[in-house]
C-alpha cells in the first residue's frame, strides 16, 4: 500500500484538512542534514508540542512550514495548502525564536505595519492592536519605542503580532525563552485561550514542563527525525504508581498490603508501584479500616522529562 501524499491528506473530501501535515520532509544545508525526514500530522484545534534537544531541527522545521526555507525533499502542507502558500500565510501567526522589531517604531506602529501586511480593514487596526497588546500584558506600553523594550517585552510583543488577525494556526518558536515566571504563566494562559477558541497552536519548545502543561499531543524530534509522536497520556504511559503518606499503623505497615503492588520506601512516604488505578480507593479503604491515617495519596506518572530522556536514550 502506498503512503498517502501530504496533498491527499490535506484534501480528504468532507474532512477538514489537518493544520499541518508533513511526509518525509528533509532539509540539508550543504553537507549538514538539518531535517532527515519529518513525518507528522497536527490536527486542527489542538495544541501540538514540538520537542527536541538543541540542534534537533525544530526551528528548521518551522521555517520550512512557513516557506522561509525551501525543502530538500518530502512534502509539507499547512492549512490545506503547500507550505509557504501566500493565502495560507494570511491565517498563520508566527513568533520566531530569534528576532527583533524595528527599534525606531512604537509597539502600536509595529502592530499596524503587520495589520497592513495582512491587508485587513484599516478602521479595525487600532482596536485590534489594543486587544493584542492587552492580551500579552503590554496594554500601557503601546506608544513606547521598541528601543526601550527589554528582551522579554519584545517577546511579548512578538506574541501580540502573532495573534493579530485571528489566525487559524499560531506557530510559537520557543515563546518563553526570554520571559520571567510571570511571563511564562501569561503565555500559557494565552495558549489555553487560543485552544478554547479553536485555534491550532504549534509550540516549538525545549521546556518540557511547558509542553506538559499545555500540549494535547507532542512530537519528539532528534537529529532531524521524529522519534515519538502522540498524546501526552499515550507517550507517558498510564499511571501505575501511587505515593502514600500513612501514620498510625506502626513499623512495616505496608507489608499488610502487598497484594496491591510493590512497595518502595521513599523518605517519609511510600511508593506503591504496579497498582491498578481502579484499586487505589480499595487500598485507601483497607488502610483506614486497619486503623491507619492517610495523610496523602498522590498518583505518580513518569514525567515528560524522564520519558524524553528515555526516548533520547540518555536515561
Amino acid at each position: 500500500m502506498r503512503a498517502r501524499t501530504a496533498r491527499e491528506a490535506a484534501g480528504r473530501p468532507g474532512a477538514p484538512s489537518p493544520a499541518v501535515h508533513t511526509i518525509e520532509l528533509r532539509k540539508e544545508f550543504r553537507r549538514t542534514v538539518a531535517l532527515a525526514g519529518l513525518s507528522m500530522t497536527v490536527e486542527r484545534g489542538e495544541v501540538f508540542g514540538f520537542l527536541g534537544p538543541n540542534g534537533a531541527g525544530k526551528t528548521t522545521a518551522v521555517k520550512l512550514l512557513l516557506g522561509l526555507l525551501r525543502p530538500s525533499g518530502g512534502e509539507a502542507m499547512v492549512l490545506g495548502a503547500p507550505a509557504g502558500d501566500l493565502e495560507a500565510r494570511r491565517k498563520i501567526g508566527y513568533l520566531p525564536e530569534l528576532f527583533r522589531f524595528q527599534s525606531w517604531l512604537t509597539a502600536r506602529e509595529v502592530l499596524r505595519v503587520h495589520w497592513q501586511l495582512l491587508a485587513l480593514p484599516s478602521q479595525r487596526a487600532a482596536g485590534a492592536a489594543g486587544e493584542a497588546l492587552a492580551a500579552v500584558g503590554l496594554a500601557g506600553r503601546g506608544d513606547d519605542k521598541i528601543a526601550s523594550f527589554s528582551k522579554g517585552m519584545q517577546q511579548r510583543l512578538g506574541l501580540a503580532v502573532a495573534l493579530l488577525g485571528e489566525p487559524s494556526l499560531v506557530v510559537l518558536d520557543e515563546p518563553t525563552s526570554a520571559l520571567d515566571p510571570v511571563g511564562r504563566h501569561d503565555v500559557r494562559e494565552v495558549i489555553r485561550r487560543l485552544r478554547a477558541s479553536g485555534t491550532t497552536v504549534f509550540l516549538n519548545t525545549h521546556l518540557l514542563d511547558e509542553a506538559e502543561q499545555v500540549c494535547d499531543r507532542v512530537a519528539v524530534v532528534e537529529r532531524g527525525r521524529t522519534i515519538a509522536i502522540g498524546a501526552l497520556g499515550e507517550l507517558l504511559g498510564r499511571q501505575t504508581a501511587v505515593r502514600l503518606r500513612v501514620s498510625g499503623l506502626g513499623e512495616g505497615w505496608w507489608h499488610r498490603f502487598d497484594s496491591f503492588g510493590r512497595w518502595v520506601a521513599d523518605g517519609d512516604s511510600h511508593l506503591l508501584e504496579g497498582v491498578e488505578p481502579a484499586r487505589v480507593p480499595d487500598l485507601v479503604a483497607a488502610i483506614v479500616a486497619a486503623g491507619g491515617r492517610v495523610g496523602a495519596v498522590v498518583p505518580e506518572r513518569q514525567s515528560l522529562e524522564a520519558r524524553f530522556l528515555e526516548l533520547l536514550g540518555r536515561s
Binding site: 501566500l86 500565510r89 494570511r90 528576532f99 527583533r100 524595528q102 503587520h114 501586511l117
Partner: peptide, 14 residues
Amino acid sequence: DSGVLLTILARPVR
C-alpha cells in the same frame, strides 16, 4: 541577520 524580516516574510508578502 537581526530577524526583522522573519516576522515580515511570514506574512502574505512576496
